[in-house]
Design a protein around this nucleic acid. Structure first.
Length: 293
DNA sequence: ACTGTACCCTGTAGGC
DNA sequence: TGCCTACAGGGTACAG
């Protein structure tokens, strides 16, 4: 579910509630998510202040006053919802009764101001880890992450260097978190459509014989940035599970050019192609066979 | 060193 | 209605 725009939207929703606040109490409703919770998980969070909430790729990183950082990945269906002290709150179709909780409410952070931050995750592909702050950048999960697409570090040059000599196709390249951090199945398809590139083309078209970036690489970097920024502006994309921290749906699914639009007309000006769906590396890929080359 | 497949888990949609 | 299959935003562990 959550790719970079969704994680960033959740971060922006949580930050005003969490940053500068102290965690009074932690409830865990089971022993594990994707991985077991860290040793003494609750004790290591309770009484600590949250100094900052940042994002790296699809990871959320909360820095604690104890010197440790809480790393969270939302997996496919992870969701944070904020409840500000009400005994009963309704957000869209999501109803939460304090103290009871819904199925799959796995973790509750109770802040000293009474706010409750509930982590819900039906499929449990998400996880939470605690890492000493100094070891954050060397942590195996974060260490190998590629360029942050909205920062300057993602350039056509970087993409060309990483794509050189690769057999993988463009879609797989964009999905590879070691190359670019934060793109998933939706935004890889959407970015390739914006760039006019066929997802099944070899990634090697991004570099010339000397390893210099091609025009295609420049177009692709611009398309990645644009689609991610547009999606963040719309509060992310809601297909089924994803919600913002206040329970609201995202809006970018209304602007998909290709994702989920199999059989429909291409919306690109002057192109009257039909959107196709294909399985690539086990994942559904959507594209226009006419304007994506 | 790379690549494709199976798998983790639950819910939902569609065909029969 | 119910049963069965396929599929879903994630990543990883393998086998080849």
């Amino acid at each position: 579910m959550p790719e970079l725009p969704e994680v960033e939207t959740v971060r922006r929703g949580l930050a005003p509630v969490l940053v500068g606040k102290r965690i009074a109490r932690v409830e865990t409703r089971r022993a594990d998510l994707r991985f077991p919770f860290p040793q003494r998980f609750r004790e290591r969070l309770e009484g600590k202040k949250i100094a900052s909430l940042t994002r790296r790729g699809k990871y959320l990183v909360a820095t604690l006053s104890s010197g440790e950082s809480l790393i969270v990945h939302l997996g496919m269906t992870g969701r944070f919802t904020v409840f500000r002290g009400e005994s009963k709150a309704t957000h869209g179709n999501y109803v939460y009764e304090t103290g009871l909780g819904l199925a799959h409410d796995h973790v509750v952070l109770v802040l000293e101001d009474g706010s409750r931050i509930v982590y819900n995750d039906p499929r449990r592909f998400g996880f939470m880890l605690l890492v000493p702050r100094g070891e954050l950048s060397e942590h195996p999960l974060l260490r190998s992450l590629g360029a942050e697409p909205l920062d300057k570090e993602l350039t056509a040059e970087v993409l060309a260097v990483k794509a050189r000599g690769k057999k993988a196709n463009l879609k797989s390249l964009l999905m590879d978190q070691r190359i670019v951090a934060g793109l998933g199945n939706i935004y890889a398809s959407e970015a390739l459509h914006r760039a006019g590139l066929d997802p099944s083309r070899s990634a090697s078209v991004l570099a010339d014989a000397k390893g210099r970036p091609t025009v295609r690489a420049q177009k692709l970097v611009a398309a990645i940035r644009a689609v991610l920024n547009d999606a963040i502006g719309a509060g992310g994309s809601t297909l089924r599970d994803y919600r913002q921290a206040d329970g609201a749906s995202g809006g970018f699914q209304k602007s998909f050019a290709v994702y989920g639009r199999e059989g429909e007309r291409c919306i690109k000006k002057g192109c009257h192609g039909t959107i196709r769906r294909r399985i690539d590396a086990g994942r559904a890929t959507f594209f226009c066979s006419r304007c994506q080359r």
